[in-house]
Amino acid sequence: MNNQALKELLYKMADDQLILGHRNSEWTGMGPLLEEDIAFSSMAQDKIGQSLALYTLLQELGERDPDTVAFTRNANQFHNCQLVELPNQEYDFSLIRHFLFDTAEALRFEMLSESSYEPLAQLARKIRGELRYHTLHANTWIKQLGTATPESIDRLQKSLENALPFALGIFEHSPHEQELISSNIFLGEETLKKRWKEKVESVISQTDLTLPDWILVEPTFGGRIGEHTAHLQPLLDEMSEVFKIDPTAEW
């Protein structure tokens, strides 16, 4: 088994979960409904927990401890896709991102539950229920607001169109794509993207929203190789602010 390929996969997954978990947690106390505030915050917390599990797998492969990895790297050392670092904007954008990302995430872990790398397969099986709720939550909201009023439909449609190029950036190829596939660690980004498109199409078709022709959507790549928007570094600064006051403190 090739450790470089495996580490690259784990890093990008963990960084996605950490950054989106942090972004979504920015809604805590400001959600559109009390109940939704709690639900969105809980799922953000789940994402941070999932990133911790993945950083722990990386530590077992010889990387630094999870806190160091999470709080001491700079933006150009992060492998998350750019979709997850974008500012929250209005709730319509946060919901569309939640839907597009979590659909991919749930399918990725579903594929990984059969991975030849057993610790990752175990984790995927363990968190299946959490992810199932996350996608139910996302799909229910999209179907609700995607059929509700002209304003809600229009807002979601605009956010969908803004988010799609970044969402396709989730599937940026790894330099180790073939090795991951041939060693049965992961079926690869192309397979994931195909399944993701089918799922996204099936949910959107139950709404008054429309998907553009995929050929016309130019993917935004770069996140996986450390190229980020200007929004990531301020997020990292804020996230690590307390940790950096006293990195050795016990909490």
């Binding site: 409904l33 109940e35 939704e36 709690i38 639900a39 809980s42 939550h137 229910t140 609700q144 509700a148």
Partner: peptide
């Protein structure tokens, strides 16, 4: 109780409000 626009929305909102 939770506030919601319909039964399915109530379900997803109740899940975290009461069983987190």
């Amino acid at each position: 109780a939770v506030h919601a626009p319909n039964l399915e929305m109530a379900y997803i909102l109740a899940k975290e409000t009461f069983t987190r």
